[in-house]
Design a binder for these strands. Structure first.
Lengths: 204, 204
DNA sequence: CCTACCGATCGGTAGG
DNA sequence: CCTACCGATCGGTAGG
């Protein structure tokens, strides 16, 4: 979805998805509070009040972007670990899909990490709950690996933050036009994750 | 410095440092554009126009916070690697001081990473130059270690972003009231950095 | 999809 | 350090 009808030189055909896409680009670039709805409208070549034919408020735009992203993150985690019994390969895949998402959905990732505190309730609580669930699942994975002796960490909680936040930060430096594809970066990061978690024999 | 005269129940004695400290807390919490100067003033129990006895603009507050922090990061890096010839111990110390800073200067770190794009020129360029210098220095460290065979990485650039951004993210989860001290976290993160960089024998 | 317009709030100044 | 006040801009509504 998305980007389709938000192309700079595009004509008419504004849709809710186009408004959301324009908002996503601008929120990612300038932040939620740093973006005026007049800028979103200008990007779509319409006047500010016309936006209200496609959305109900600025806050709703933010809520949709952040909640959808957070739900997808959790769904991708579940799909990644599903059917794998080896804790190391579960961690590897969890890190891979998380890093991959942050390379392929950079705008959404930047918004989630920058503007989550600007959300109104009840969406804020829903998003924080999804985030906690993901953090806990990764922490449990690392703790289990440590118990079984296949991972070596001092503090599972610290290692899980190290792993997760490292993946998140891909959104801050990755460029689709760069020398590496999103998949290649995700592959390297899944390896980094195992190294941070002290996977024996991980180097090389 | 700082926090001293910004205590909630405090009386009078507003200084430039107190204004900057109150702004640092609020910018970190709500973002630069999400913070009104009236909130900074309220925190100091004065009226908004009185702030102008201690600063010249909201933008100047941001510029001071971000530029000072960026300069300190570079100075700390130089001090950390100074006098060490072993590339592994240089990387370890660089990661340690960077992680330590992000545990001890959480507010400033959050502002730098969230609101750097809101800076006016010429400060924006100065800050980006300092950041590039730091990134390049760490990348060179990892590349040198790979050349000498003491580190094993696929792409030094990717590994250096992994290491640096992992350290940065300490600001997003560390709590001074938690079970670990800033120094203990920094120690674990310096170990993570060596693991990511494929330091042979790093696990355990 | 538009023009016209709203109250609220913003950063900042005047002038003491 | 204050009150009084400024122009600009914000998100959003009325009404077509």
């Amino acid at each position: 979805m998305a980007t389709v009808s938000a192309a700079p030189g595009d004509r008419a055909a504004v849709t809710p998805a186009a408004v959301r896409d324009a908002a996503t680009t601008l929120f990612a670039e300038k932040g939620y509070h740093g973006t005026a709805l007049s800028e979103v409208a200008a990007r779509l070549r319409i006047r500010t009040p016309s936006l209200y034919n496609h959305m109900s408020s600025k806050q709703e735009l933010l809520a949709e972007i952040v909640l959808t992203t957070s739900q997808e993150v959790w769904a991708e985690f579940e799909a990644a670990v599903d059917g794998r019994d080896d804790v190391v390969s579960r961690l590897r895949e969890a890190a891979r899909v998380y890093a991959l998402r942050h390379a392929t959905h950079r705008r959404e990732a930047l918004i989630v990490n920058r503007d989550v505190a600007s959300l109104d309730e009840p969406v804020l609580s829903q998003v924080l709950e999804l985030r906690r669930r993901h953090e806990r699942a990764v922490r449990d994975l690392i703790a289990e690996g440590a118990d079984r002796g296949v991972l070596v960490v001092e503090t599972p909680r610290v290692a899980s933050f190290g792993v997760l936040e490292m993946c998140v930060s891909v959104a801050r430096w990755f460029s689709p036009g760069g020398p590496l594809t999103a998949e290649q970066v995700a592959e390297q990061y899944s390896e980094f994750a195992l190294r941070v978690a002290g996977h024996v024999g991980a180097p090389t």
